[in-house]
Design a protein around this nucleic acid. Sequence first.
DNA 1: TTGAAAGCGCTAACAA
DNA 2: TTGTTAGCGCTTTCAA
Lengths: 354, 354
Amino acid sequence: MSQRACHVTKPFDDKNHRPLTLRDVSEASGVSEMTVSRVLRNRGDVSEATRAKVIEAAKNLGYVPNKIAGALASQRVNLVAVIVPSLGNLVFPEVLNGITEILDDSPLQPVVGMTNYEPEREEKVLYEMLSWRPSGLIIAGLEHTEASRAMMRNAGIPIVEIMDSDGDAIDAMVGISHRRAGRQMAQAIIDAGYKNIGFMGTKLPLDHRARKRFEGFTESMAKAGLEVVDQEFYDGGSSLVKGREMAADMLKRAPELDFIYASNDLIGAGGMLYLMDQGIDVPGQIGLAGFNGLRLLDGLPKKLATMDACRADIGREAATIIAKAAGAHSADGAKVVLEPKLQLGETLKRALRR
Amino acid sequence: MSQRACHVTKPFDDKNHRPLTLRDVSEASGVSEMTVSRVLRNRGDVSEATRAKVIEAAKNLGYVPNKIAGALASQRVNLVAVIVPSLGNLVFPEVLNGITEILDDSPLQPVVGMTNYEPEREEKVLYEMLSWRPSGLIIAGLEHTEASRAMMRNAGIPIVEIMDSDGDAIDAMVGISHRRAGRQMAQAIIDAGYKNIGFMGTKLPLDHRARKRFEGFTESMAKAGLEVVDQEFYDGGSSLVKGREMAADMLKRAPELDFIYASNDLIGAGGMLYLMDQGIDVPGQIGLAGFNGLRLLDGLPKKLATMDACRADIGREAATIIAKAAGAHSADGAKVVLEPKLQLGETLKRALRR
DNA sequence: TTGAAAGCGCTAACAA
DNA sequence: TTGTTAGCGCTTTCAA
C-alpha cells in the first residue's frame, strides 16, 4: 500500500479530469486489464516480469482501485457494519478497539454507525448500512423495532448482537447478563451490611441494559426483604456533575441513605465526589457503586466499586465470530456470555465503618 | 424508510437465496425497473398509482436497494470519509457529533476511520477509504506522509483538514492555532504571577498539535525571560493516573514549581487531584492548566483552567464545507480558523494566594 | 501465463 | 408518465 502510492504523479487523468481506471494502467503497462487486475489483487499466476511492469505503471499513475466496481463485480464487500448508540459513551470506543484489533488480521474493515439510542435512527442507519451489502453486522443490544429485526433476518449475512445476553438474538450474540450483574451488585452491597440503598441512573426506557441492571438489582434486594429507599433518573449523557446533583437531591429526600448504586461509573463518581465534599465518610457512612469499570476514572480520590463490562472482550469475540463466518449467510447463532468482574474498589466496604 | 421496511416478509429470494433486486420489485409490481428505480429514489414524475404499486411491492418483498450498483451507475457516493487518530480521546467523538449534526440535513453519511496516531496506518486507511470514492474527506491534522498527501491531492474530492491551523492545507482547513493557544496560556500564567512553571504532556513526535502548543508556550515564556523549570512526557492515552504520577515526579525533581501546564485536561486533572491530596493549595501555592475544555471533567473538586478547543464547532464547520462542495472536485481551499476560549477555572488565580 | 467476453445491479440519457 | 438502451469499472469464467 505504502509503496503503491509512493510516486503518485497524476491523480486524475489530466485531460478528462476523471479518476484513473484499470484501463489506464493497462495501457500504461501494455498488459491486459485482466492481468493488471490479477497483479493488483495478488491473484492467479502472473509472471514476475509482467507483475513488475504493472506495479510500476500503477505506482507512477497513482492508481487507486475502485472498490465499488470491484464489489459489484465480485459480489463481495469487505466491510463489517458496526452499529452502536453513541461514541460519547466511552464504553463503545473500547468495544470498537476490540473489534478493530481482530479485524486488523483480516481483510475486513469496520464501518461505524450511531443511533443515539433512538430506535427510528437505528432503523435508518441499519437500512443505510445494509444497502452497502456488508459482509457482517455487529449491533449493540437485543432490542430493535420489528422493521429492524425483519431487515436483519433478511440480510443474509452473519449478525452479532452485542453487550447484552438477556434476550433472544437474531443470529449470534456476545455479551453479559446485565440482570445478573445487577443482582450480583445488590448481593455484594447487602452482604456488606448496607440497608438503606438508593439508585440513580438513566431514564430507563432509553437504555435497556441499564434497565435490566436495575431490575436485577431490585430483584435481589426484594429477596433480601429490602426495597430501594430512593431513586432518581436523568436524561442526557452521564457526567460527574449529574452524579453530584442527583446524590445531593437524594440525600436531601432520604437522609437515611447508606448506599447509592449508580447505573454507570461517571455518575457514581460524581456522587462520590459530592459525598466527600460534604465530609461524609465513604464507604463507612455511605457506600457507592457504579457500572462499567472505566479505567478513565482510576485516578479519582477513591476507587469506585464497579463491575467490568468486558468491553474490549465483547468487541474481540464479536469480531472473531464475524471473521469466521465471513462469506456465510449467518453466524449460526453462536452465543458467548461473558462474566463481568465485580471490583469492590474503596467504596463498598461496610466493615470499615467505625 | 421506516415504512418501507415495515412489512418485510421475504428478505432473500427464497428459491435462489440471493438478495432481491430491482427486477424482483419490477416483476412483483408489473412496472419497469426504471420506474421502480424512480419511485424508490423519489425522482422524476411518476403517477400516484404506479408509485403506490411499487412501494407496496418493495415493502412486501423487503427490498433493500443495492447502493454499490447505484453508486457505480450514478458515479455518486454519498459518503464522507472521516479520518481521526482515535476515538478513545474524547475530543474526536465530539468532533464527530458536530459533523453528524450537519450531515444529518444532507444526503451525506460520515464513515469513520482511525489511525492510532500512526502515519503508516493513516496511509492505509486513507487508501482504503478513497478506494470507495467518497464525496468528501475530513481528516485530522495537517501532517501527513508524502504518499498520503499525494493521494489526497489526486483524489479529486473536497478535503478538509481539521483541528489545526498552523501549517498548509491540501485543500480546505478548519481548526485553531495550537501554537497561539500555547502562547495565550503562557501569557495568562505569567500574568497571574507564576514564575516556576513546569510542563507535562504526551511524547511530542506522536502528537503534532500538543507539540505546537508546547512550542507556542515556551515561546511566550522566553519572551518573558522565563524557561520551563521542569518537564515530563509520557506515552499512551492520557489518564488521571498518569497526571498524578507525573505531577509527583516533577514535584520531587523541582520542588520550587508553582505552576504545571498539562498538554491535556485529563492529565491536568490528575495533577490537580495529586496536589490536593498532598494538601497543596491550588492555585495559591501551585496553579494548573490543561487543554481541551472537556466538559466530562466538570464535576471535579476544582474547575481546571483550560482552553476550549472548539471541537463540535470544528466538526460543524468542516461538514458544512464538505456539504457545500459535494460533487465538486475540491473545497476551493476554504479556511476557517476558530478562536479557542481561555477558561481560567479555579486553578489559575495567583491573586488568591495568601 | 495471458486474454476476451459477459455481466454484477443499478441509473443516465434518450425515445415513445 | 413510462420504457429502452447502454454502460459505470471491475471480476468471473472460459478459451487460448
